[in-house]
């Protein structure tokens, strides 16, 4: 059963709808002791990373999240929160994965936000099991996580190669929105729910 960290950042109706369609049960996590009821944890997030981190700090759940050993998936801004720092609001984040979240550079001739369906170059990882390499996922973001060969499990290309998905131990993050990415996104959510 998936627990969704309910810290007030963004639209979780679409996420819970996707889980329901997949027959995956879920609940909301509002306090530290509620983490124990769930086998898998999702950190959602939409909007401003600095503002989202403020809310997560106020929820008092950051230390507990850092100590988790069960599978954790951060989605979009939820993924960015796993990194050290974001240029959005010059925010110090959870530092679970030692990476930087940066603003896209419009000097590269790209429109910002990066909005729409883009191909994802997938490394062999159980999160993407059954998903063909170069499958397209739906992205909406202005800030990105730098590519890193150690923690990167998938990349996308928008002006430059960057992290579409990252992993460190039991912590996973995806920059795209699996709940909005058609059948491939639903498969990814299902794969996550099956991670040991």
């Amino acid at each position: 059963m998936i627990g969704i960290v309910n810290y007030g950042a963004g639209n979780i109706f679409s996420l819970t709808s996707a889980l329901s369609r997949l027959g995956i049960t879920y609940g909301m996590i509002n306090s530290e002791d509620e983490f124990d009821q769930y086998s898998h944890i999702i950190i959602p997030g939409v909007g401003h990373a600095g503002a989202a981190m403020d809310k997560l700090n106020k929820s008092g759940l950051v230390d507990k999240i850092r100590s988790l050993t069960k599978p954790v998936l951060g989605i979009c801004v939820g993924m960015q929160l796993l990194t050290d720092h974001s240029e959005e609001g010059d925010a110090t984040l959870t530092s679970i994965i030692p990476l930087q979240t940066k603003l896209f550079d419009k000097e590269l001739g790209i429109k910002i936000p990066h909005m729409g369906w883009n191909n994802v170059e997938i490394k062999n990882n159980s999160l993407f099991e059954g998903v063909e390499n170069q499958t397209q996922f739906y992205f909406v973001h202005s800030y990105f996580i730098e590519y890193n060969p150690i923690f990167g499990i998938a990349t996308a290309d928008y002006g430059q190669e960057y992290s579409a998905a990252i992993q460190k131990d039991n912590f996973y993050g995806v920059q795209f929105h699996p709940e909005k990415s058609g059948a491939a996104g639903e498969r990814l959510l299902l794969n996550f729910s099956n991670l040991k």
């Binding site: 709808s17 369609r21 709940e179």
Partner: peptide, 8 residues
């Protein structure tokens, strides 16, 4: 719509 739809 959101319950049924898997695109934005």
């Amino acid at each position: 719509v959101a319950r049924q739809l898997n695109i934005p």
